[in-house]
Amino acid sequence: MTKMLDDYALLSPLRYTNNWLKIGVVGFGILMGISSQAPLVPFSIAICMSLATLIFGRVPPKFYLKLLMGPAVFVVFSIIIIAFFFGGGPELFGFNVLDYHLGVNTGGLSMAFLVFSRTLGGMCCLFFLALTTPMVELFSVLKKTGLPDSFIELSMMMYRYIFVFLDVAWCIKHAQTVRLGYHDLKTSLHSMAMLCSTLFLRSWEQGEKTFVAMNARCYDGKMMIFEEKRPVNFSEVALSLTYMVAIVGVWYVSNGMLEVSFW
């Protein structure tokens, strides 16, 4: 069974630190990275957040690298297109394909580099949140945001059943695989369809059973969850503030330098 990020988050040593602090650090990183015009800012965010994930979150480095490689295909394709089609400036190199000239110029290349760094910075922030904060903790945050109750109830129940159905799906898939259910394309299409339809019917029945079970326990459309107090300690705040000040400093220096170079 594939391990999901949530499994790591539940075991993470940072699990019991204050949720708002973690969300603040991550949100700050994402917004600073995306608003920066210089690639240096997202790169430094990426390095800081990766170090935080690896050292404080004790995530195995090999797994973390594999995680970063996941979105690589999409990013590489899109960046190549941006490099070829975006921006102006002197052309660096080019070639002709079927009477159509393709060239990379400095503007396109720097844009591609900037987008790459932003994506990297954003992904590192997101991974930090995903690998240290289990969804269970985020529900109490969601409850405070004032979203409609039915939406939050829906997401909480969905969260529970994702794991139930993943188990069912993997069991069926293993059973099908050992019976050569995936040995060629046509068979695998049929096996897959059988798996999905069984899953749908199972989930349908499960939904009916859940309603009966919850009704029997006086469910009135609102589940109460226990929210633990998570005090922040001084070292965490100090470290987060140092990080934020450092990033703001890098932001001003690098974006300031960019403006100078424009003149």
């Binding site: 109830e153 129940m157 969905m158 799906a169 897959m192 798996l195 349908w204 939904g207 859940t210």
Partner: peptide
Amino acid sequence: DLLPLLAVAGAFIFVLSSL
């Protein structure tokens, strides 16, 4: 009784999209 049904439907979509 629709809420639990919609919840399992959402979970079903998630599992479907992760296969």
